[in-house]
Nucleic acid binder design. Structure first.
Ligand SMILES: NC(=O)c1ccc[n+]([C@@H]2O[C@H](COP(=O)([O-])OP(=O)(O)OC[C@H]3O[C@@H](n4cnc5c(N)ncnc54)[C@H](O)[C@@H]3O)[C@@H](O)[C@H]2O)c1
Ligand SMILES: NC(=O)c1ccc[n+]([C@@H]2O[C@H](COP(=O)([O-])OP(=O)(O)OC[C@H]3O[C@@H](n4cnc5c(N)ncnc54)[C@H](O)[C@@H]3O)[C@@H](O)[C@H]2O)c1
Lengths: 231, 231
DNA sequence: GTGCCTTTGTGAAGCCATGCACAAAGTCGA
DNA sequence: TCGACTTTGTGCATGGCTTCACAAAGGCAC
């Protein structure tokens, strides 16, 4: 059978598209708050900071939800993207490592706002255990596996020092977690089937520094670049 | 003259490569701490979590710093990558918005550790101004431009609420800053020549949720995926 | 010096993402 | 009902990134 109907959603949405869906969702929520009922790909793309053709191609992976000559229904598109991202259910998240960063995350309102619920705060330091943060009590990380199982935690945020991250990672995976958001500056080793995403401030700054250096070096090609290239 | 020697560093290093250099640098520092003198692309790639061919091609963009049959000299490669990233000089960074997140960032040791120095903490809230954090005093954001100019700030971290981010962004750009790290969940609009990188927790969680949803839906290929493909 | 062995640096192929450009589709006014 | 206009959905070309595979390069043992 050679016939090959390129059915949307037949299997997978490109990673690049998935990474942009939250952006579209945010832009759509902004429009919805201002009472906008429909939006064209051009306008939505502008709000999300992407090319309109890319936006349309991205949305076409979810299905054909637009109306030609009109645009997209804001509310309907919000629902479809939310459903696709799995935000119509709520996800229990545990934060391991309640130091500077862990506290900031626990207090972060935007966390809860869209489908994510902080179901546990865990730390290894007895001095921190028992602290009340954002309505939760910090528990000892000895009970990590129990917390994960009992509260149905499916996403774990690692905000421990780098030295503890792999160990915490191994434990939560053993407890059945397959989605990890890592703030520690280490490359986590995980088995197939486990997703790790990392947020790394240090890397971002270094990338900025790279470009900044090129700017201040006096234009596109500085003298040093030519050194040794003669002959 | 048709001869075209593909000299490394002739013009630009691919973005994808630049984004990985900090990863290599981190892995190399780990090796250096353990006293390793030389490392093969295979081993370094393993430590950095990438394919070894990719590592070699990345490094080849900087120059030909390896020795065939031996590998790369760890210290020398650290120096070369550092220099390429602009980490041999130190960068003055200002943090605007000293709330939960801004405080965590200010207290973050890994900031200073590699070429970045927090040169200013600024906030609009009089209740926060005057606080002492990590050896610095929080200043009022009215003086943003003055701080940037007087202390040679070239990278600004925005950790204000989303509503204030664009305004802060406009001001720091007007003050001459061309590198911004944005933590606020908004798409910043900037003129050409300004680099913005964003760190967005919410997006990362949503991407994790997407994949997690697919997993729990019943394995690698769920029934719904096959609907309509028969025949 | 010579030959073997290891490892680099890179040509080439394949893959994925981007963005243009346009036909198809649907709305809306007359 | 019809025609003009708007906007979507997508075929296609382009470009960048990744990966394989290997010739060239260099160290090292003898
Ligand atoms: N603070 C920031 O702005 C920032 C920025 C980027 C990255 N990071 C990274 O995020 C991580 C946390 O940073 P931080 O500033 O909050 O550090 P922190 O030292 O303030 O907090 C770390 C916390 O983790 C706890 N901990 C240690 N081992 C543990 C274990 N095995 N199980 C559970 N908890 C454990 C400690 O008791 C402590 O409370 C670090 O890896 C840091 O490099 C932080
Ligand atoms: N806390 C987190 O873990 C987290 C995670 C992801 C994203 N974010 C984002 O980071 C930003 C900061 O988060 P937060 O939790 O620290 O919020 P916060 O409310 O605790 O802190 C914001 C700070 O910015 C200051 N501010 C407001 N307007 C300002 C202005 N015009 N100039 C200077 N300072 C100003 C406020 O006075 C306050 O101190 C928010 O946009 C948030 O969405 C936070």
């Amino acid at each position: 059978m050679i016939r090959r109907i390129p059915q949307a959603r037949e299997r997978g949405i490109p990673d690049a598209t998935v990474a942009r869906l939250p952006l579209y969702l945010r832009a759509l929520n902004g429009l919805a708050e201002r009472g906008t009922a429909t939006v064209s790909s051009e306008d939505l793309a502008l709000a999300a900071g992407v090319n309109s053709a890319k936006l349309r191609k991205d949305l076409s992976h979810l299905g054909s939800y637009g109306t030609r000559g009109v645009g997209y229904d804001v509310q309907y598109l919000i629902y479809q993207i939310s459903r696709e991202l799995g935000l119509t259910q709520d996800w229990a998240v545990a934060i391991v490592g309640v130091g500077n960063l862990g506290r900031a995350l626990a207090n972060y309102g935007g966390f809860v706002s869209r489908g994510f619920r902080v179901a546990g705060l865990l730390d290894a330091d007895p001095a921190v255990v028992g602290d009340h943060i954002a309505g939760l009590t910090v528990e000892h990380s000895d009970g990590l596996e129990a917390v994960i199982r009992k509260r149905g935690v499916s996403i774990v945020v690692i905000a421990t020092p780098a030295t503890a991250a792999q160990q915490v990672c191994d434990r939560v995976i053993a407890a059945g977690v397959t989605s990890i958001l890592n703030f520690a500056p280490v490359v986590l080793t995980v088995p197939d089937g486990v997703d790790v995403r990392k947020v790394d401030l240090s890397i971002e700054l270094q990338i900025l520094a790279f470009h900044e250096q090129r700017k201040v070096s006096g234009g596109p090609m500085m003298a040093e670049d030519w050194a040794g290239e003669a002959g």
